[in-house]
């Protein structure tokens, strides 16, 4: 039996990240993947799917609920242990750092699970990078917008051309050792107060 026969359950409240993980698992050849976005009724899902591996994000406060569920195991057919192998601390640390935790069926060979956890870690990290880039792109766009507005204000109030207005903003930023966007924001704020 290859590791592609494993049944994998992904629990992630973040639907986008869950989709990214699911894609990765399917691309890697895993056919038995179930994704849920809430832990409500999770006992029934576990019972129905009988997962060999459960992947859950560690930002989810309901992890403690999962721990309790695994302890009871009345609703879960098999005992489930945490993490791949405690001796493989490097891969575990990478997982914890990325914000992934995994539960596996007790007794499952670690070689079969490691590629899954490694993939989840890579995808989790990729998702964080994506979010960071998105936030940076958003703030760059905001900066451009405020600089445009400041330019407009200067052109109108001081009868400057667009190039002159931009040069004035840039020179002021250099003189005051501040970011161009910050100077532009002060212009916009000041204009709001004065006009």
């Amino acid at each position: 039996m290859s590791h592609f026969d494993l049944t994998i359950l992904v629990i992630d409240e973040n639907a986008v990240r869950a989709a990214i993980i699911e894609d990765g698992l399917r691309e890697a050849g895993h056919g038995h993947v179930t994704v849920v976005h809430t832990v409500t009724g999770i006992a029934r899902v576990i019972e129905a799917t009988g997962p060999d591996v459960i992947i859950i994000d560690i930002e989810n406060p309901n992890r403690d609920m999962m721990e309790h569920l695994f302890q009871l195991t009345r609703s879960v057919s098999r005992p489930i242990a945490m993490f791949v192998d405690r001796s493989d601390s490097a891969s575990i640390e990478a997982a914890v750092e990325a914000g992934v935790s995994a539960y596996i069926v007790d007794g499952l060979k670690k070689e079969r699970v490691k590629p899954i956890l490694d993939m989840a870690v890579i995808r989790f990290n990729a998702f964080s990078r994506l979010q960071r880039e998105l936030a940076e792109a958003k703030s760059a766009l905001e900066d451009r917008k405020v600089i445009e507005r400041a330019k407009g204000i200067l052109m109108k109030m001081r009868q400057l051309s667009e190039e002159e207005a931009y040069a004035l903003l840039r020179q002021t930023a250099m003189n005051e050792k501040k970011k161009l966007a910050d100077i532009a924001q002060s212009v916009v704020t000041a204009a709001g107060l004065l006009m």
């Binding site: 560690i58 406060p61 992890r63 999962m66 721990e67 993490f83 640390e93």
Partner: peptide, 15 residues
Amino acid sequence: DVSWANIRDRLAYRQ
């Protein structure tokens, strides 16, 4: 942190 399971694991894995 958000859960006791995280606290336990992050202590165990030296975070």
